[in-house]
């Protein structure tokens, strides 16, 4: 108990939690839509673009978030357009853009300052990454994402479940797709520093998949993945502090364990159901 109080007295830990919990919450909410719309890889692509933007920003000495937010938002619009109508299929388009952005980022980061530790913390995340000014901006962005999600909840459901129907009955589904992409972009940029470029997309995909093992309605999937995501984040960050393991990777492993537990329970439930029926 004393150890936990001691841990919470560090200001970097407080910042990591204040930035991380809202991000975990936003990522889980958006993740349900992204997974169901088969857009899960967009999150991965965007985080790599975000890495490129961060590398450029730090090479020129600009504030990282001010550069990364607009760049990733623009990339989100482009990726959405690409996956909707283009000759190159969506998944290959995402692969091209994300690996290209990663490559550009790595080259610029090494040429720019030659600091490998910095590069490492971008790629795999760092508990120390959240600076005091990041905290303010992160909290504002998370609040915006949460508010928009709650206000547009029913529209996001309709567009996720059946875009054709929504469009045909006069709902502007294109605009709501853009909204989802925009919110995803913001969430990724905020969460990237703690989770790392390579691992942030797991924050989006894991909680949604985990809760879909057991929950049968959209609302319960949303609520369950929000709870699972925040819990996994907190458990992961505590574990990484005590075991001195990398933060992002630890959180992903906690998420993986949660997923396996849910999958196992779902299997057992299915087995009991068939067993009862004989």
């Amino acid at each position: 108990m004393n150890e936990i109080i001691e841990m919470l007295s560090f200001s970097f830990m407080q910042r990591a939690l204040i930035v991380g919990i809202p991000v975990a919450l936003c990522a889980a909410l958006l993740g349900v839509s992204l997974v169901l719309k088969r857009y899960a890889m967009i999150g991965d692509g965007l985080s790599h673009v975000g890495f490129g933007a961060l590398a450029i920003a730090s090479a020129f000495g600009w504030t990282p978030l001010w550069v990364a937010v607009p760049v990733v938002v623009i990339a989100a619009f482009l990726l959405l357009r690409l996956s909707e109508n283009s000759k190159i299929k969506g998944d290959s388009a995402i692969a091209i853009i994300s690996s290209a952005a990663l490559a550009i980022g790595v080259v610029i980061a090494t040429v720019g300052n030659g600091m490998n530790t910095d590069l490492n913390s971008y790629l795999f995340g760092s508990i120390l990454a959240a600076s005091p000014q990041d905290v303010v901006m992160s909290l504002c962005l998370s609040a915006v994402v949460l508010a928009v999600f709650v206000l547009f909840y029913s529209k996001i459901f309709a567009v996720t479940f059946d875009e054709g129907f929504a469009k045909a009955t006069g709902v502007n589904s294109g605009a709501y797709n853009m909204l989802i992409a925009l919110l995803t972009a913001l969430t990724i940029v905020i969460g990237m520093r703690i989770m790392g470029t390579l691992l942030i997309s797991s924050l989006i995909i894991f909680p949604a998949l985990t809760s879909m093992r057991l929950c049968k309605t959209y609302k319960s999937v949303i609520i369950c993945s929000a709870v699972v995501s925040v819990l996994c984040f907190i458990v992961g960050i505590f574990t990484s502090y005590f075991l001195e393991t990398p933060t992002g990777a630890t959180i992903v492993i906690v998420n993986l364990i949660a997923f396996l537990c849910f999958a196992l329970i779902s299997k057992i439930k299915g087995w009991m159901f068939t067993h009862e029926r004989g």
Binding site: L36, F157, F161, A166, C215, T217, Y218, S220, V221
Partner: peptide, 11 residues
């Protein structure tokens, strides 16, 4: 898709 009948009809 995980959704209840009511959620789908209401949409």
């Amino acid at each position: 898709f995980p959704a209840s009948v009511y959620e789908v009809v209401l949409s």
